[in-house]
Design a protein around this nucleic acid. Structure first.
Lengths: 219, 219
DNA sequence: GGTCCGCCAATCCTATAGGATATTTGATCC
DNA sequence: GGATCAAATATCCTATAGGATTGGCGGACC
């Protein structure tokens, strides 16, 4: 009998290592703004708080650094990345505008029916709270990127979307009713297998989203 | 006086930490095929070989894992990523085809003169050896991505280009005379500040490059 | 009053030791 | 001869202790 066992809901608790678990935890704390941008992160404190040794903390922070969520200064320690400035927001949306409409088109052409079903499941409902909308938005874009059948694109967008999430959370942006409608437009086009319509609907969504977020920053 | 000192060519040797140095070292070994794809990588061995403790090795490997160059299996150890298969190659070039022509267009419109100068410096010369061409190709695409003024794009492409480099090295691909000509066509278009021409020249270059690499794989 | 210098605390960085696990090897049995 | 099982090895994972460095604080000096 292995040390890991079957738990109630028939799910193996595969221990991918403490490092990965710590990674998820810290990333969650960053995304929930429990660790605000530009905040010092002490290895020692985290080790005590989470009740593990320093080594897995260090590994997790190294991975977070490689993903651009924290930065390390030699002999000074780690700190969460500063909030995006105007230039970075521009760069990020230029990138999204380049990739996501293409992904939407491919998804409309190649997505399997089952995944289109799950896509409908993240439409509108549970968009009552701010966090609810954020999670829904994340899931929406992730499903489409995966539906396009390109893991590289999906991973790149997921990595970037984290920063969008943080930026949006910083300003407690009101839940955009428009965004839900824009999502629905994309979903409808994908359901209709209309690649061109999906591409332009996604482009419109991202452009509007860009406009909504850009208002918060003027430096 | 700080511990780090000024060296001959007026450059500070800023010690970014052992972890980063180890990171570069391992990445170089992977790119030079000294660590071939799908090869076990022992933390202990590396520690002894490089004469450092296990901790910086572990941090470096964590960063490499986040960048997709090695993978970790719990209680089994690290291993270099397996060589790209056909599907991954397709995904990678779909991505490049999406991003790089756009970058070339922007570079033609916005690149400053000085950088165009350095661009000409990587044209043709030192393309005699295989490694020489590989480095030149890397530098060529990096300069254009940076010239487009979008760090996100530049970083994403740099990360992907490493895998192209490894794949090409695996097959000891002959130095493609064509590639140099295609590069020159892009450079000429950028020099002429012709965005449309730069975009299509880059698209053509990547498509041809894709065709050249695709021949090596048929599974 | 402003500036510079030395001290102190906090933190990171490194090294080593011990526990746990997967893979491999060898012998035994069918 | 092939398959199965068990022990041994190599490796990773964790924890703790000690050395090195940076940044901040207070006092002295101009």
């Amino acid at each position: 009998m292995s040390a890991v066992d079957i738990i109630g809901d028939r799910q193996i608790t595969r221990p991918s290592g403490l490092a990965e678990e710590v990674y998820r935890r810290i990333r969650a704390d960053i995304m929930s703004l429990k660790l605000p941008p530009d905040t010092r992160v002490s290895v020692d404190s985290l080790a005590r708080e989470l009740g593990v040794s320093q080594t897995p903390i260090r590994e997790a922070l190294s991975m977070l650094e490689a993903n651009g969520l924290v930065s390390k200064k030699h002999f000074t320690g780690y700190a969460t990345a500063p909030r995006m400035d105007r230039a970075q927001l521009d760069e990020l949306f230029e990138f999204r505008l380049l990739v996501e409409p293409h992904a939407a088109r491919k998804a409309a052409e190649a997505m399997i029916e089952a995944d289109i079903g799950s896509l409908g499941a993240v439409s509108g409902e549970s968009a009552s709270s701010h966090d609810g909308f954020a999670d829904m938005d994340t899931e929406f874009h992730k499903l489409i990127a995966q539906g396009a059948g390109n893991n590289l694109i999906a991973d790149s967008l997921a990595r970037l979307h984290i920063h969008v999430h943080i930026f949006r959370s910083c300003f407690r942006s009101e839940i955009a009713e428009e965004a839900v409608h824009e999502h629905d437009a994309v979903i409808a086009a994908i359901r209709a297998r209309d690649g061109a319509a999906a591409e332009s609907a996604m482009r419109r969504h991202i452009e509007r989203s860009y406009g909504r977020l850009r208002d918060f920053i003027n430096d």
